[in-house]
Design a protein around this nucleic acid. Structure first.
Length: 731
DNA sequence: CATTGTGTAAAT
DNA sequence: TATTTACAC
């Protein structure tokens, strides 16, 4: 929603530039024979000749409009040339146009602060350049470029008594400084537009005014390939004249409400309302912003931003093309994940940036109609893990999570697999995945941090990755514990390369381990890093992705979330409570066959005593072929944790919002016990050994004496323990 | 059956 | 923080 910023008055010179029917121009540059003809660019879609997304001015003369279907355009204008948008991964891909837009941005950014507002629009703050030009003196009629002379000056009397040409207006002396600045701005914009044409062959239209709102409003007033300037004296007239919806952000519901509820037809009509009244009606932010709109004020800054902050792909599946089974959803998700990863690879290579968040969205219809009309399929997000398989796996999980939330009947996974009476039949009409939180990756002194920055865990294995557990909850593994720890929590993330050796662990309020890393890279010599505990014994290989977490933000050591009463040996399973829409992850204990339930869903958690749950057993963790179900009853709460002290959180959670983690104890089903005994307890466990010589003596010698001692001590201690048994869990 | 695919920002 | 909503091209 719009938010009012402090207004800068009439001190700035802002330009908005808009490429004329841009996709058409891009196609015409590629195929010059299309120039001067009625042309439209259509998006791949076999239905009725596809949807038009750009229309040349020649075709507009026949009445062809954007958002028509190709077939209709052809009827209206038989000569029209329809050009298809390139496709990749089975759907329209606009990268080609985005890259063409980048060429333009490269030219324009020479002119001032440059904000890329969309694929074909740019804002420029050219205040500095305009002021510099003004110091050199006002322009003279003789030196005005043709393009500058053609500037449309709003409100200028071009005939009659006060007749004046645009050129004359631009060269006036004895005018307020703000007008002179705008005039200089017009010269600069004319030059920039000429440069864009010369260097890219593209024409654009531009608006020049004292703020973004005015520049944007003005740029579309004379198209194509022309520029318009709005002097501040003309602002009230303009605002009283144009339809309200021409103002940015008033083209939708807010504008409609203003018109229908308050009878506001033009931005100027807003001036009758007090600031207080507008605040009452639409909230403080929007109210203030509207008050400014009425006066042609806008403090919005032109941000120096040329690169997108998020990258996404999506596709719709309208009508009978809707996806109704997991196989087709996975097919398309696969395509989209490949594409997303490609885009991320390019962004990493070209701009040295990485994303932080994976966002999933879908539009889904339920068979018998949506029982709660208006309820939409929920968006889901999780930390992003690079690699197309990982993105796909995570996207799948997010989809399944969304389905569980969305489907009224069956809250377990894979609705198509369920028995017929619990089947939830759905149809996916749109899928999209995106990567957000994109930022430049640290370099230089931060390379160590970035090299070892803990990659996010999959949402499945994501034991409280996003829900902080107070450190007091965590128990450092003792050497006895470590035996069982090897497999625990390693599910799904065990294939990473070894990157070091664990040399010490310490416990305490903020437990940490030191890992010793071997590196062949001269830029990253061996060093030790303080990190949260990983699992494994002293001297055991450290696998970066599965076990190394840099200690930051008081993050809990993920390898050893455990309630204090349970042994550490166990396996991850998934739970999906029957009488609640939440999912939980469980860890199974070997001795009492109870379940330590650690909730991870981001909803307010409300697991009550006696609540039944259903568990989908992780086949990988239990060493079984296919997914199995088990069920049980929660019989005690151990703690609810958050950043608050543990003592405050021992009671069962109520309706508390926000996020937290819940540790509960639940009785597991006989089936689960059985599976556990057969497949985990009695499974022949693999083993590995470490030898002292696996630790590089040279490296050891270079370590601080204190660490050397620790390491040697621990090796002594462990000598008796070898070989260390290592469960197969999670491999 | 049918405005697609992207992207931003604020509100909740 | 995660998700939803609104808007734009």
């Amino acid at each position: 929603m719009p938010v009012a910023r402090p207004d800068s008055g009439e001190t700035r010179v802002i330009a908005h530039l808009d490429l004329d029917c841009f996709y058409v121009q891009v196609e015409q540059r590629k195929r010059p024979e299309l120039r001067g003809k009625p042309v439209a660019v259509v998006q791949f879609n076999p239905w009725k000749g596809g949807g038009l997304i750009a229309v040349s001015y020649e075709a507009r003369k026949c009445g062809v409009l954007r958002c028509m279907r190709g077939d209709d355009a052809k009827k209206m204008c038989p000569d029209i040339e329809l050009v298809q948008v390139p496709t990749a991964h089975g759907h329209a891909n606009v990268n080609y146009y985005r890259d063409a837009g980048t060429e333009v941005v490269e030219v324009l950014s020479r002119g001032g602060i440059c904000e890329r507002a969309s694929i074909d629009e740019v804002y420029l703050d050219i205040t500095e350049a305009a002021a510099a030009r003004l110091i050199k003196g006002l322009p003279s009629l003789g030196t005005l470029s043709e393009e500058a002379r053609k500037t449309h000056i709003l409100g200028l009397e071009e005939d009659g008594e006060n007749a004046m040409t645009a050129g004359e207006w631009l060269c006036q002396s004895n005018v307020p400084r703000c007008d002179a600045l705008l005039a200089c701005g017009a010269l600069i914009v004319a030059e920039l537009r000429a440069a864009v044409l010369a260097e890219t062959q593209f024409t654009c239209s531009a608006g020049i005014g004292h703020n973004k709102m005015l520049a944007k409003l003005t740029s579309s007033m004379h198209k194509p390939a022309q520029q318009t300037l709005i002097p501040s004296s003309y602002v009230p007239t303009l605002l009283a004249t144009i339809p309200l919806k021409k103002i940015g952000h008033l083209g939708g519901k807010l504008g409609k409400s203003l018109t229908e509820d308050l009878g506001v037809k033009t931005p100027g009509d807003l001036i009758q309302f007090s600031k207080l009244k507008l605040q009452e009606l639409y909230g403080v932010n929007t109210g203030n912003w509207l008050w400014d709109v009425a006066r042609g004020k806008n403090g919005d800054e032109v941000k120096a931003k040329v690169l997108p902050k998020s990258i996404s792909c999506g596709k719709t599946f309208a009508g009978r093309t809707a996806l109704t089974n997991m196989t087709s959803v996975m097919y398309w998700l696969g395509e989209m994940c490949d594409e997303l990863q490609e885009k991320l690879d390019i962004d990493l290579e070209v701009h040295n940036r990485k994303a932080k968040l994976l966002v999933f969205h879908a539009a889904v219809q339920l068979r018998g109609g949506n029982p709660q009309p208006g309820k939409k399929f929920p968006s889901k997000s999780c930390p992003i893990r690079y690699g197309k398989e990982k993105i796909l796996a995570d996207a799948r999980i997010l989809f399944e999570r969304g389905l569980r939330d969305f489907c009224p009947v069956n809250k377990s996974l894979s609705p198509v697999k369920g028995s017929s009476n619990s089947k939830c039949e759905w149809a996916v009409t749109a899928l999209s995945i995106g990567a957000g939180g994109i930022s430049t990756i640290p370099t230089g002194v931060n390379s160590i941090t970035s090299f070892f920055a803990a990659p996010p865990r999959s949402p499945e294995a994501n034991l409280s990755a996003s829900s902080p557990v107070s450190p007091t909850m965590c128990r450092m593994p003792s050497s006895d514990d470590l035996e069982g720890m090897a497999g625990f929590l390693s599910d799904g993330v065990t294939k990473d390369e070894e990157c070091g050796t664990l040399i010490s662990c310490s416990s305490g309020e903020r437990p940490s381990c030191r890992n010793l890393f071997h590196s062949d890279d001269d830029a990253n010599p061996d060093f030790d890093v303080k990190c949260t505990p990983s699992f494994g014994c002293i001297g055991s290989p450290v696998r970066q992705k599965s076990s190394l977490e840099l200690s930051r933000d008081h993050e809990i050591p993920r390898g050893c979330i455990a309630n204090p009463c349970s042994s550490l040996d166990g396996a991850l399973i998934q739970c999906s409570p029957v009488e609640d829409h939440l999912s939980v992850h469980c860890r199974v204990e070997t001795d009492s066959h109870t379940c330590a339930v650690v909730s991870i869903d981001s909803h307010p958690v409300d697991i009550s005593l006696g609540m039944k749950y259903e568990a989908t057993l992780n086949p990988c963790a239990l060493g079984i072929e296919t997914e199995e179900k088990a069920s049980g009853v929660v019989h005690s709460h151990l703690a609810r944790s958050s950043s608050k002290p543990l003592a405050e959180n021992v009671n069962p959670p109520s309706s508390a919002g926000g996020h937290g983690s819940l540790v509960a104890k639940a009785t597991s089903s006989p089936k689960l016990k059985d599976l556990w005994q057969r497949n985990v307890l009695k499974r022949p466990s693999g083993s590995w050994e470490y030898r002292q010589d696996e630790i590089d003596e040279e490296v050891l010698a270079e370590l601080p004496a204190e660490i050397q001692k620790e390491l040697l001590d621990s090796m002594k201690r462990n000598r008796a323990v070898r070989p260390v048994k290592r469960s197969n869990i999670g491999r």
